[in-house]
């Protein structure tokens, strides 16, 4: 019965509470980005646990690979699709919640009961094993490239396959050739000639004639009015478009006041 030291005990209790809270946050949060961040929290806690238990390499890999790469993947995909879909917590399948919770609780009890009931041997600790190879990384390497070599090769195949698979799945085959800039310009003018409301110069990027480099601040048209089209439609729909400062014309006096420095005029206008 190996006892852990005080430090580890403290780490364990704090970390376990944080990770459980994070897991609960993952399950119950409405906004998906919050859920992703809760998961990151959990993973970080786990990384600490790994390091505390002597699996140093694994802890680092947990942070680098899991939290760093995998969760970033998640967040990229969230950006692409997830922001719009707000998940309501109302259950649509009849009886799903009522069945799921008891089952899951039962499973949990079974698992904990198994652990409690099992005749677990005494904790040996990984120090000796780590020391065998002269450090955790070296011992792992010794084991990885000798006994688990075949699994290693197979996992490389898995990785290659998954990368290829992802490319295949998300590939969008072009059915028509991509228009060059000249061609799309010609097309724009043709459509404008037919009477369509199309902007001849193309849409402005956000930040053009803008005071801010932010996505949610509209750009200004040459006559000083904000361009709705310069803000992402999503943000427009969400009504999170920020206010703007109207751009004063060069040399114009506003309300009798002389043109002061930019900053003063800006403060004044903002208060309007």
């Amino acid at each position: 019965m190996g006892n852990t030291g005080h430090g580890e005990t403290f780490l364990f209790w704090v970390g376990s509470i944080i990770s459980i809270l994070g897991a609960l946050g993952l399950i119950f949060s409405k906004k998906i980005v919050h859920a992703a961040l809760c998961l990151c929290t959990v993973m970080l806690c786990l990384a600490f646990f790994y390091m505390a238990q002597g699996a140093v390499f694994l802890g680092v890999v947990q942070i680098v690979v899991y939290t760093g790469a995998v969760m970033m993947l998640f967040l990229f995909v969230l950006m692409l699709i997830g922001i719009e879909s707000q998940d309501s917590l109302v259950e649509t399948i009849r009886g799903q919640r009522w069945l799921a919770v008891p089952f899951v609780l039962a499973f949990g009890f079974v698992l904990i009961g198994v652990y409690a009931h099992a005749n677990l041997p005494e904790f040996v600790g990984t120090d000796a094993a780590n020391a065998k190879g002269g450090g955790n990384v070296q011992s792992l390497a010794l084991l990885l490239f000798s006994r688990y070599f075949w699994a290693f090769e197979v996992s490389s195949a898995v990785l290659i396959t998954s990368a290829t698979g992802a490319m295949v799945l998300t590939h969008r085959e072009r059915t028509v050739p991509r228009k060059s800039q000249r061609e799309s310009s010609i097309e724009r003018f043709e459509r404008w000639g037919k009477g369509e409301k199309v902007s001849l110069t193309g849409l402005p990027n956000p930040g053009v004639y803008a005071q801010h480099n932010a996505v949610d601040t509209p750009a200004l048209l040459p006559d000083g009015s904000p361009s709705e089209a310069s803000v992402n439609a999503t943000l427009r729909g969400r009504d999170t478009v920020r206010g703007f400062r109207p751009l004063p014309l060069p040399g114009a006096r506003r309300n009798g006041a002389a043109v002061a420095s930019r900053g003063d005029a800006g403060n004044e206008e903002v208060s309007q």
């Binding site: 799903q96 069945l99 799921a100 089952f103 899951v104 039962a106 499973f107 079974v110």
Partner: peptide, 9 residues
């Protein structure tokens, strides 16, 4: 998923 989980339990 629920039936699989329940069955596994």
């Amino acid at each position: 998923a629920l039936s699989m989980f329940g069955g596994a339990t």
